[in-house]
Structure formats: structure tokens, C-alpha cells
């Protein structure tokens, strides 16, 4: 996969917000009643930028992503996407999950992407052509006719990314997509994803628990606190993508400190 020059296009984060999350609270109804995961979250995502959502375990970052995707209704607050509210799930906010169940096992790699295109209105022949292009674009030209169970974990995630991008979404939602992969594969996929996003100018909202990944891939990092969570801080990491650079280390330290504080308050200190 060709690595395009960094000096590409408009700086991300200019223009009106594509996504506005304002005072959103969301939780679950369990046997003991309502449990709040997110108490009050507010942040924005502008067209073209990559925003990372990070926080301690159970802070509701995946839940927030699902609200934006349209799978959940917020208990309070407002979510405005592209000027609309009351969102249902749709291809304009294509999702890449962590689990390999996101690929349809009865279809080939090509079939998975082509089906997604057909289901959202693309005619059959064009869907196949587009599907092939996108799969080649993620480096899977040799695996088009394989079924998901014949693909490695990394290859499956590439297919999922290709499928999501083929839908030409307004925003790409990613829920810890590389969390189940080994370090080497993860590194390669992070690199390739960054290149793809740069080349296509896709807006991305990415949930992660890895500080390094957040700094590497993100333009801004939204740090959530402990459950019931609020946005603690938004750390700007635009342009910070070389792990050996001092800005990288500084950003990493800042994030680690923020998350460590959360951990401390979570487990009440002995003194």
C-alpha cells in the first residue's frame, strides 16, 4: 500500500462541526435499575479530522460510539450529525467493530464489500468493481475470493475497513478495531489506516484504550473520566505522529497522567 506524502490537502478540523455531542448521558437498564455509563459528555468532530476517544475501562467510550452510530438513544443531551438529530444506524456513519463477527461468513471478502454496496443502493456490476478497488486498496488483491474463516485477524479487519470506506461514509466510526490483533499486525494496520485516511480525507471517530494509538492516529484525543464519565480533557495531537519526537512523548505523558488520576480516584487510596 503506497505511502502518500504527508503534505496532503487541507488541514483537518476546519469548518463547521460534522458531529456535535452536547451534554449526552447514556446508560443501561439492568436488574438494579438504570446504571449511567456516561453522565455528561460534550465534544465535537469537524470534517476531515480524526478524533480519538480514550478512557479507563467501563467509562462508556464504546457506548458513546454506539449512540453516535445510532444503535442507542441518549438518556439526556443532544447528538447532532450533519445538522440532523434523532439518528438511526446508517451507512453515512459506517462502523468498524473489533469482533470478526462483523464480516458475513457466508460471503467472500469481495462478496462482503459488494453486498454492503448493493444493500445501500449501488447497482450490482458497479458494486463489484468498487468492492474490488477498495479491497486492492487495503492490500487484499490476492484474497478476494476467500471466506472470512480463511483470513487472518489482520486481513479480516482490512476487509471491514475496506467495506466501511467503500460506503463513502460521512464519518468512519471505529470501536477498538485493532484491539484483538498482535502488536506487529496492529502496527501495520495503524500505519495503513493513517495513510488511507490521509488520502481519502475521511472523518474518523476512533475508540481506543491505547495511549500510543491515540497519539499516533489522532488529531485530537477526547479523554473520558471514570464511570459515570465526563469529558476530562481534549488533548491536541495533530501532526504528532512520530513516536520518537518529543511532542509524542509529551502527549503520551499527559494522557498517561490523566488516566492514572482516574485510576487513583477509582480505587480509593489507602491513606
Amino acid at each position: 500500500m503506497a505511502d502518500t506524502a504527508e503534505a496532503s490537502a487541507a488541514a483537518p478540523g476546519t469548518g463547521p462541526p460534522l458531529l456535535e455531542v452536547a451534554g449526552v448521558a447514556v446508560g443501561y437498564n439492568g436488574p438494579d435499575g438504570y446504571t449511567a455509563a456516561v453522565a455528561d459528555a460534550s465534544f465535537t468532530v469537524r470534517a476531515g479530522e480524526t478524533v480519538m476517544l480514550i478512557g479507563p475501562s467501563g467509562c462508556g467510550k464504546s457506548t458513546l460510539l454506539r449512540v453516535v452510530a445510532g444503535f442507542l438513544r441518549p438518556a439526556a443531551g443532544r447528538v447532532v450529525f450533519d445538522g440532523r438529530t434523532g439518528l438511526a444506524p446508517g451507512p453515512d456513519r459506517a462502523v468498524v467493530f473489533q469482533e470478526s463477527d462483523q464480516l458475513l461468513p457466508w460471503r467472500t471478502a469481495l462478496g462482503n464489500v459488494a453486498y454492503a454496496l448493493r444493500a445501500t443502493g449501488t447497482p450490482r456490476a458497479r458494486a463489484r468493481a468498487l468492492a474490488r478497488d477498495h479491497l486492492v486498496g487495503v492490500g487484499l488483491a490476492h484474497a478476494l475470493d476467500r471466506h472470512p474463516h480463511q483470513l487472518s485477524g489482520g486481513m479480516k479487519q482490512r476487509v471491514a475497513i475496506a467495506r466501511a470506506l467503500a460506503l463513502a461514509p460521512r464519518m468512519l466510526l471505529m470501536d477498538e478495531p485493532f484491539g484483538a490483533l498482535d502488536a506487529q499486525t496492529r502496527g501495520r494496520l495503524q500505519h495503513d489506516l493513517a495513510a488511507l485516511v490521509r488520502r481519502t480525507g475521511t472523518t474518523v471517530l476512533f475508540v481506543t484504550h491505547s495511549i500510543d494509538e491515540a497519539v499516533l492516529l489522532g488529531d485530537r484525543v477526547v479523554v473520558l473520566g471514570d464511570r459515570p464519565s465526563r469529558v476530562r480533557e481534549v488533548v491536541d495531537v495533530a501532526g504528532v505522529d512520530r513516536p520518537d519526537a518529543p511532542e509524542f512523548t509529551a502527549a503520551r505523558r499527559r494522557l498517561r497522567a490523566l488516566l492514572a488520576e482516574e485510576e487513583e480516584t477509582a480505587h480509593a487510596p489507602a491513606h
Binding site: P89, G90, F97, D101, Q102, L104, A116, A119, L167
Partner: peptide
């Protein structure tokens, strides 16, 4: 799997 259904829904099905 819930994820498979979620994918379907996110395609607008």
C-alpha cells in the same frame, strides 16, 4: 452474533 446484526443495521437494513 449481535455484531453481525449491528453491521446489518448500520447498512440500513
Amino acid at each position: 452474533p449481535a455484531t453481525t446484526v449491528a453491521v446489518g443495521r448500520s447498512l440500513g437494513l
